[in-house]
Every structure is written in structure tokens, then in C-alpha cells.
Amino acid sequence: MQRPYGFRRKGPPTSFIAIAVALVQVLGTVFAASRQDGARSLDALAFLLLLAGPAVLLLRRRMPVLMVPLTFAAALAYLLAGYPWGPVVVSFAVSLLLSAAAGLRWLAWLGAGSAAVTVLLWSLLGSDESWPLRVSAAAAWAAIFVLLGEGFRRRKERVAEYRRRRAAAEQAERDEYRLTLARDIHDVVAHSLSMINVQASVALHLGTNEPERLRPALEAIKAASKESLAEVRQLLGVLRDDAPLHPGARPGLARIPELVEHARLAGLRVELANPVDPAGVGEQQQEAAYRVVQEALSNVRRHSGAAAAVVRLAVVGNTLQVTVDDDGAGLGGSEPGNGLTGMRERVEALGGSLALLPPDGPRPNKGPNRGLRVEARIPLGTEGTGP
């Protein structure tokens, strides 16, 4: 079952660990004491020492450095007091695991070494002939708990790193989505409002001087505003999560003649040369080409003061080439705005390039109206076809 976003699997709480260890030590020792003869009977001090180790585990969050020495001291005090043998070392073993898991490797290995040395001295002082076996077993078990803690720590680090990468990827995806949406909004609003503004200016002029040409200008304003409202509603639907990012018919090569016709209605002489068959071009490449032509023609009308422009489309090899030439003043010395930045981002996102050049190529300008060429090269990928 998929976990909800933000859910984090955590280990058992420290209080649960302490209670479980206390039950094991107390009940296990009581059971073991009933089968041992000659040992000191369990009294209040014995139970206090049996509970001291588990209680120290509660310091896991606040003072983890005290767990190993205090649990070791509690277990050693219990055994030195002559009480019956039992699972009194469980809290010490758990402290080794928790310390290693918390990154206190030096402390965990120091505790494991201290346990092995203690067992060695205990066996030698007691003249235990099997001391090598006891010492080896104690050292092995202590090392096992430390290594288990190391394993938990490394797993925790891997999980944390995975979560960081996933969060970064999700943030990058959200940023890219917002950037794409911002470009769409700019392309729709800037283009449509620009044309409406130009046509409104024309209509004001014609209303006084040439009334017979007023109706076509008003019809162009109506068509542009209708198209703009439809696209804005679609984008608002995206913001409400009611629609995909590109609902309905996506802008493509088939709609470039509409852009040319709108520019003509705005008073710009525009020629569309070498139209390309949309069937051989992918949807993303088509939309990028459409937005390049849309923004280029919008800039021609708003900034360059051009009278004519030429839009050329061509498939060369595995690349869709889009060029828009005009006879205006170009950028007029101003820096590229959001529209040109958005065009470049769209094209580069598909592995292509976009350049602003003189119409006949990269040569020095010879006058203020040298003109400007917007040239985009968009790789077609596996969806494209050759010429």
C-alpha cells in the first residue's frame, strides 16, 4: 500500500525499548535464579540494579554518550554483588546497538572491548579453564551488536539520502512546471494583448479617417480577445487542477498560418514560406516552433517598427529550423525580455538553440533598420523525419 506523502517510518520509541528490556532482565533473572543454588537471593538492591540499565536507555535522545558506561556499570555491579546470573547484560548489549546506530562508533567499540576484557579478567580470577571460549563468545556477541547498530545507521543514512534526493527532484519538477506555466501565460497574454492594442489603435484612427475599414479591425480585435480568453481559461483550469497543462488542441505548426493572418490584420506584411507537414514533427517540437513564431511576430509589432516580416519553416536532416526576419530596428538596443527568454528556454529544453542575428547572417549592422532574424533550431528526435 502506498504511504501518504510526508509519512516517515520510525523505529520503536525509546520508552518501549526500555520497558521491553526491563521485562526481559527482571523476569529472565527471576526465572534463572530459581534454578541456581548458592547465589545471593534477589532483594531490593538486585531489582534496583536490574531496572537501572533499562532506565539508562531513556537517555538515548538527550545524552546518548552515557548509555554504554552506565549500563555496563549497572550490570557489573549486579554481578560483583553475587546475585544469580541471568540476562542482566541485555541493557548493555542494547546500548551498544543504539550507540552505534546513533553514530557513536568509538563509544560502542570501546564498550565492546571493555566487556571482552572484563570477561577475561573474571575468568582468570575465577580460574576458569574455559576462559578462551568465554572471552571469544563475549567479544563476538559484543561485536555483533555493534555491527548491527552500524547496519541500522547506514540504512538510516541511505533512507535519509533517498528522501533528500526525492524532495529535490519533486521541487525541481514543481519549479519546471511553474516555469512552463509562466511561459504559457506570457505567450498567450502578451501576444493577444499586443495584437488587441495594435488593432485598437488602428480602429481609433480608421473611425475618423476611413470608416469603411473600421469593421475588419474590430473583427480582428474580437477574434483575438476570444482566442485569448479561451487559452486563459484553460490555463486557469490548470491552476485549479481541473485540466492538464495543455488541454484541448495544442499550439502547433498547423496553427502558424493563424498567427500570420493575425499579424496581417494588425497591418504587418507577413509572408509564410516553406510550410512543414506537421505529421513528421512531434507535439513538443511543434509547440516550441509555434511559440517562437508567436513571440517573434509579437515583438516585431511592438518594438521593431518593421513594415514586413518573413516566416520560414524547414526540416533539415533531423532538425526543424524556424526563422522570422523583419525589416525593423531589431531590439533597439534594449535587453531581451521575458518573451525572448521564454523562447530560448523552450528551445533549449528540447536540445535546440535560439539566436538573434541580422537577416542575412552574422554581419555588422549598417544602419538602424538593418532588421533582425530570430532563428531557432529544434531537434526532432525519433519523431522527426528528413526533408
Rank of each mutant, 00 (worst) to 15 (best):
Q2F: 06
A32T: 08
F31W: 09
R344Q: 01
S192D: 09
V159G: 10
R301W: 07
L214P: 02
A217P: 05
E212R: 11
P364C: 09
E283I: 12
Q171I: 15
S95E: 05
R155C: 15
A137E: 04
F16V: 15
D325H: 00
R158P: 09
R166S: 06
L147F: 11
P379R: 07
D360M: 12
V347D: 00
Q171A: 15
V300L: 12
R373M: 14
R255A: 11
P364L: 09
L27A: 01
V90R: 01
R174C: 12
G280I: 15
Q199F: 08
P69Y: 00
R301C: 09
E271W: 02
A142Q: 07
V276S: 07
V281F: 01
R154E: 13
N365R: 10
A142D: 09
L272A: 02
V146S: 04
N197T: 13
G149V: 09
S123A: 15
P69E: 00
L313W: 05
A167Q: 05
V270E: 00
V316I: 03
W85D: 14
T71L: 04
L214D: 07
V68T: 09
N369F: 15
D327S: 06
L331C: 00
A143Q: 08
S136L: 15
L239R: 06
A73Y: 01
L239W: 01
A115F: 01
P278N: 07
A263G: 04
L245M: 07
D241K: 14
L107H: 00
R264T: 13
L357F: 10
L218W: 01
N338T: 14
Q25D: 11
A182S: 11
L133N: 05
R163M: 10
R164A: 11
R165I: 08
G386M: 14
G6L: 07
A20K: 10
A169Q: 03
L49P: 00
Y162I: 14
E173L: 12
A168Y: 03
A44F: 05
S99F: 03
W106C: 10
G111M: 08
A263F: 00
S15V: 10
V315M: 08
E212S: 13
P368M: 10
D43H: 11
N369I: 15
G6I: 00
L179W: 00
G330E: 03
R60Q: 11
E295D: 07
G111T: 10
G371Q: 06
F47D: 04
S127P: 11
A273C: 08
L297G: 04
S136T: 15
K222H: 12
G82C: 09
A140K: 08
S15P: 02
L357S: 10
Y290F: 15
D184T: 14
A100D: 06
D43G: 13
Y83H: 06
I144Y: 14
R269K: 14
R178F: 05
S34F: 09
A223W: 08
T323P: 03
M343R: 00
F145D: 04
L229S: 12
A230W: 06
A172V: 15
N299C: 07
A200C: 12
F145T: 06
Q285L: 03
L214Y: 08
